Amino acid sequence: MPFQAIPRRLKLWRGQRRSKLSDLAAQIVPPAVFPWTQDGAEDFFAEEPGSTPGTLRIDPDAAPSELIAIDYSRTHWERQLLAAPTDCEPLLDSGSVTWLDVQGLGSEDVLRQLGQVFRLHALTLEDIANVPQRPKVEFEDDRILVLVHMLSPRGKGGGYFTEQVSLLLGSNYVVTVQEESEHDALEPVRERLRTDRGIIRRMGSDYLLCALLDAIVDGCYPAMDYYAQEIERLECAILFEPDRKLMREIYMIERDLLTLRRWMAPQTHAIALLMREQHPLISQDVRAYLQECYEHATDILDVVTLYQELTVNLMNLYMSAVSNRMNEIMKVLTIVSAIFIPLTFLAGIYGMNFNTETSPWNMPELNWRYGYLACWLVMIVIACGLVLYFWRRGWFKNSF
């Protein structure tokens, strides 16, 4: 029975993966400002027109595939490095639970062997290998496929980056396929299995799937804290020292949050569908834990929406701060102009050079002994009077 797509193949042609606007933004803002954003991370994978369905597009720069199997039960825990997916077949026939973690999408042979071992449809294997896909969940009689996105810490460089994680649930196994092996948010689950903390080793594969989804969702909280600190920092910087580069940083945060919301919304819907679907592979007890996972995903989605609104408010605050700063500059120029206008008027009058010998009314004060000093005194009195007037009106507050 083929998979029921929920949705099946939402792969619209979008032209190039990066639009001209994204290219322009990359030139304006250095990518090191927010290092978790990857080139082309805004768009999901798009098929080329006329391509054959089920074609695997292996990125030449993709990490080679590594296979790690964790087999556990109530009484034992074992971790193995496998050379090929076929090596896990003996584990699948045992009565324990097996977690096969495939790290890296650079080996097409490994991915095709994985499809043969677990009898994956060609379109399903295509969704696993051709990343990034839109988060979704697909149901079959004896398995469930879940595609989600995960935020992982970058490490020493700081920041976060996103990658797709494909989860395949069977009766006694869970298969996860990641894009790389260096960083992920699944280490807490590995530690719980190793130390036998909690009830994870006494539950089935459905609980392991729920634990992995919960770790992926909870891995978004540190990124939300990161953005909260960035928004608070930008708000203080805008209030006290607005600068043009702040507007570029606000734009990058808004762009990152838009990308987060774009895959977080369908991911939340996928978890809700997984929780509500009455599938025999998911027990009623595990549905309660999926409910908590769904609440966490909804909480993160609400936080992303809130931060998007805050970035819009930051943009408006920046424009208001720049406008107020311009008003202050204009006020200073107005004060200076108001003081020098009467002085310029007097200087213009006495610069007309009328001949005093032609008429006694042609500026007789020019021949006065103290005429020059009197002119200076009048101009000083006018300037001081205007300064005193503006000061009493409060025009000098926050102007200099």
Rank of each mutant, 00 (worst) to 15 (best):
T344N: 15
H269G: 13
Q291H: 13
T356L: 10
Q291C: 04
S337D: 05
H296E: 10
Q284W: 05
V332T: 15
K331P: 01
Y370L: 12
N367L: 09
P342A: 08
L346W: 11
L306R: 09
R369V: 11
W376E: 09
I282V: 15
A297M: 09
L343R: 07
F354P: 00
I339D: 01
R369I: 09
W376T: 03
D299Q: 12
V286E: 02
A288L: 14
Y370I: 04
Y318W: 12
Y289H: 08
M379C: 02
R287M: 01
P266Y: 08
V332F: 13
R276W: 01
D302E: 12
R325V: 08
Y307G: 00
T344W: 11
G351M: 06
I339Q: 02
L281D: 07
G348S: 15
R262F: 07
G371I: 04
E328P: 05
L317H: 00
L273A: 11
N353R: 09
Y370M: 07
T311W: 00
I300S: 01
E292I: 09
L373Q: 14
N324G: 00
D299H: 12
T356D: 04
R262M: 04
F354W: 02
L281N: 04
M275L: 13
V332L: 15
A297P: 03
G351H: 08
C293A: 14
W376S: 06
F354N: 05
S320D: 10
Y370Q: 08
L377K: 03
T298Y: 06
S320L: 14
R325T: 10
C293Q: 01
W361M: 06
I339T: 00
L274A: 09
E292N: 13
N316E: 15
S320T: 15
P360R: 08
Q291K: 12
N316L: 03
T311F: 03
Y294R: 12
L343F: 09
I349L: 15
V312L: 10
V312I: 10
L310I: 09
F345Y: 14
A297N: 03
M352C: 07
I341L: 15
Q291G: 10
V336M: 14
N324T: 07
L377I: 14
L343A: 07
Y294H: 14
D285H: 06
A347I: 12
L333S: 04
V336Y: 05
I300W: 00
A374R: 06
W376I: 13
I339N: 00
H296R: 10
M363Q: 08
L366W: 02
W361Q: 07
E309W: 00
P364G: 07
T311N: 09
M352N: 04
L373I: 09
E365Q: 10
L343V: 05
S320W: 01
H296P: 08
W368V: 08
A321N: 01
Y289Q: 01
T358G: 02
L274M: 08
I341Q: 11
I349G: 12
I282Q: 02
R325C: 05
N367H: 09
M315L: 14
V312P: 00
M363C: 04
